[in-house]
């Protein structure tokens, strides 16, 4: 359980502990703009529990994924602000 997980956030390699959500990993990496809203302003997580859809990012090529509901797993590629 203690082995670290390697992921890519916007092209940067990041290492996280098992059990880390993508939302937490992205914030820890210093990124606060998870997505651009409909009127092009930055937004980030609000509810932390899958309700608000503000934390949507692209995970492994699939858009509109709730980053607070998905745990990091080895080799994941995450893009924010798309």
């Amino acid at each position: 359980m203690t082995e670290l997980i390697h992921i890519l956030i916007n092209g940067h390699a990041v290492t996280v502990k098992p059990g880390t959500s993508i939302a937490a990993a992205v914030l820890n990496a210093g990124t606060t703009a998870f997505r651009k809203s409909v009127s092009h302003v930055p937004r980030g997580p609000v509810c932390g529990m899958g309700v608000c859809f503000e934390c949507r990012v692209k995970i492994d090529g699939i858009e509109h994924q709730r980053s607070c509901m998905v745990l990091c797993s080895e080799g994941m590629v995450i893009e924010t602000d798309v």
């Binding site: 820890n28 302003v41 930055p42 997580p45």
Partner: peptide, 26 residues
């Protein structure tokens, strides 16, 4: 969540919301 000016800024979160993020590694 109730709206107030600036409530949509990144890093404005829920109370349980922030705690949940901390529990998941923030």
């Amino acid at each position: 969540f109730l709206p107030f000016p600036g409530w949509t800024l990144p890093n404005v979160m829920g109370v349980g919301g922030l705690q949940a993020l901390v529990k998941s590694g923030l």
